[in-house]
């Protein structure tokens, strides 16, 4: 019963909000080209489904592609850093540079140097998504319990055994926390890059649909594409929250339920 309430509450709120919006727009006679009502947006979504779906799929590919690259790169480099403090000191500032680089400024430049637009978009989304995973995984690898490290030393564990059986599981909660952050950032990076720099011909994502609709003053279509983007962000968040729960629930504080049944 409790779970049902948990699920229904946000859905009901959303429904109420949409209803308010619908009637607000109608009552105030706001034209569709300024603020379309949800019914108009839904209609536009259905009418334009083919092109919107294709663009949605492209944006999803870029988002998850960049995320995959960010994970591999982040985990690999974090492992290297944990084995060599000297390398970490040398290269961590470069990683920080990536974090603070404004994609809006850099995307057009990347597009000039990289030939394939898809590769350029992947790169932009990767830049945004990479740092949280790296930073969190580095912290996680460092957070290994001292006594467990001593225990492994006592039993003369090999470096590989130590990595596989001790450091990796220790780092997992931190990595997942980084992943939750990077999931949303990857989407933002993909969309921002495409918005600012544009995309070519057939390989276009939701950002291009938004721009196109904006240029052609088709505001309902613009909102429909935006709605899909928002939905994607929510789904990504839910996906990684569920993943975190599945992997950590049985042992980590972050996923333990308190007495009231709410997650901490």
């Amino acid at each position: 019963m409790k779970r049902l309430t948990d699920v229904m509450l946000p859905i009901v709120t959303l429904f109420l909000f949409a209803t308010l919006w619908e009637f607000g727009v109608r009552w105030a006679n706001i034209p569709a080209y300024t603020l379309p009502a949800p019914s108009v947006i839904l209609h536009s979504l259905i009418v334009n489904w083919t092109s919107l779906a294709a663009s949605w799929w492209f944006t999803l590919q870029i988002t998850f592609g960049a995320l995959l690259l960010a994970c591999s790169g982040g985990i690999l480099i974090a492992s290297v850093f944990s084995l060599s403090p000297a390398l970490e000191r040398a290269f961590f500032p470069i990683a920080v540079v990536l974090q603070v680089t404004p994609i809006v400024a850099v995307a057009p430049l990347i597009l000039i140097y990289v030939d394939s637009t898809t590769a350029a978009l992947l790169l932009c989304a990767w830049i945004v998504a990479f740092f949280p995973i790296l930073s969190n995984t580095v912290t996680g690898l460092r957070m290994t319990d001292r006594n467990l490290m001593d225990l492994f030393r006592l039993y003369r564990a090999s470096p590989w055994q130590r990595l596989k059986l001790l450091r990796a599981p220790s780092a997992l909660p931190y990595f997942l926390a980084g992943l939750k952050i990077s999931g949303g950032l990857s989407l933002i990076g993909a969309v921002t890059a495409e918005m600012v720099a544009g995309a070519a011909g057939r390989e276009t994502g939701l950002a291009s649909r938004i721009l196109e609709a904006s240029f052609r003053t088709e505001t309902p279509k613009m909102f429909a594409a935006l709605a899909l983007l928002v939905l994607t962000g929510v789904l990504i968040f839910m996906l990684f929250t569920a993943l975190s729960r599945v992997l950590l629930a049985h042992w980590h504080d972050a996923e333990q339920l308190t007495d009231t049944g709410r997650t901490l």
């Binding site: 319990d145 006594n147 467990l148 225990l151 059986l165 001790l166 599981p169 049985h250 042992w251 980590h252």
Partner: peptide
């Protein structure tokens, strides 16, 4: 050890 020092994920 003073704490049981078990691997919590295992």
């Amino acid at each position: 050890f003073q704490e049981a020092t078990l691997m919590p994920w295992a």
